[in-house]
Design a protein around this nucleic acid. Structure first.
Lengths: 232, 232
DNA sequence: CGTCGTGTGTGCGGCAGCGTACGGACGCGG
DNA sequence: CCGCGTCCGTACGCTGCCGCACACACGACG
């Protein structure tokens, strides 16, 4: 389909000039699962434009509460604070599925942003997308059940990676969904019962994406619409 | 204390030039309680810099779920999407407590933003504040009980308005906290029992802000720290 | 003085998810 | 082949909040 095996849509959406100005300031890197690209309070040295990996944006409070508030793949970037001119990262960015990404130096990015209004406006629109999506999540967690939210997250992961088989454990999903591991097992087995997914020992296969979309909470569709409206 | 009876801190933080450039493009308006400054999908024609009023930022899904994800007073502005270059508002902005605000035309604001880098960087930092605060809320709702979240919201309202007596009903609070009205009554009476607040028929008085801060969830302190770090 | 609307107190059954905990299953490495 | 770590199934009691519903209190208004 695409000329290159894997692209980043955000970079593709830029003009030739801006894209080169970004890529020339960075380099390809391989990201391992579980790697931390940003942590709370630590300054971010790089922004990342994923190509074929997925990075979960997680908020973790002082007490033991976690919640995934975003999932970044080839359609986006890691490092929203850099666009907003803040050095410190508010949230944690964890590599959920390994793969490669384009890594860009924070200072270089800041310079490019000052120089190009087009680049600035594109990335600010992306910030807006993440802003809206986070608002969705805030309601989602308390309004929708585990099963629906699990379906949503699996679909999102599939979309980001363009693959139907995901390497995810119930344990990991539980942490990003902010529920018990046992709760995920329950929800997952219900989805499997309905032939929507199939899973075994850390490997989840999406059998029926359309069916899953029905089982998922409306936030899934809402999320896609938000992105399409601003960057489609 | 201040030279004028009521100021907006965001505007005060700007240089003389930028502040004038903004204020000259707008005008003072009076906002009534319950008024909608922005609604889902509707284009925003104005940004608002509150002086002595409080505006709740509410996300409301298609189904009957509401949740306040931000409270804007003299320390901030209503119209984050305008800073990000998006016309449509993702969230609803409702006037929680009546008062006056500085209203600025959206197009004029966009022009000023292009012209002044200082203005841009200040407002982008504010966007970042709201971005982080929303992440807080996302976890807060499911991690903390009604009583703690009520205490937090009351404190926030008090801070925004610099007053200890608020005109809020349990009903209204229930909607912004995303819980039952009865749940608010329960939590409020518990706080009153402990002499932290006192209330009657739509009027709530904060008796012991420090005690309230203890009763409130850590998100309250976290919120203040976020703001102070970026714009203090 | 009664009426009505709004605001608050209270009660009850129900449920989703929590914390915990134990046991089985698979797979890798020795 | 055995042992151990990881991953998943399942169970039990508990709790916080929901949805609903009804009764009372105050105040404005005629």
């Amino acid at each position: 389909m695409t000329t290159k095996p894997a692209n980043n849509l955000l970079l593709d959406g830029l003009g030739e000039r801006d894209r080169k100005s970004i890529t020339s300031a960075g380099e390809m890197v391989a990201l391992r699962g579980g790697e931390l690209l940003a942590d709370v309070g630590r300054a971010m040295a790089y922004a990342f434009f994923p190509l074929d990996c997925a990075i979960a944006i997680v908020v973790s409070q002082t007490d033991q509460t976690r919640l995934g508030v975003g999932l970044v793949g080839r359609e986006g970037m890691v490092g929203v604070p850099l666009i907003l001119g803040a050095a410190a990262a508010p949230l944690r960015a964890v590599v959920q599925s390994a793969g490669s990404a384009w890594r860009v130096d924070a200072i270089a990015l800041a310079g490019r942003l000052r120089a190009s209004e087009r680049l600035r406006s594109t990335l600010l629109k992306y910030v807006h997308v993440r802003y809206e999506q986070m608002a969705q999540v805030a309601v989602c967690k308390s309004a929708h059940g585990v099963e629906a939210r699990l379906a949503r997250w699996l679909l999102m992961s599939g979309d980001r990676l363009r693959r139907a088989d995901l390497l995810l454990t119930h344990e990991l999903l539980a942490k990003t969904l902010g529920v018990r591991r046992a709760g995920v097992t329950l929800a997952a087995s219900a989805l499997q019962e309905r032939r929507l997914i199939r899973y075994a020992r850390g490997r989840i296969e999406l059998l029926d994406p359309q069916g899953l979309a029905v089982a998922a909470c409306p936030c899934y569709v809402a999320d896609k619409r938000i992105y399409a409206r601003l960057l489609g």
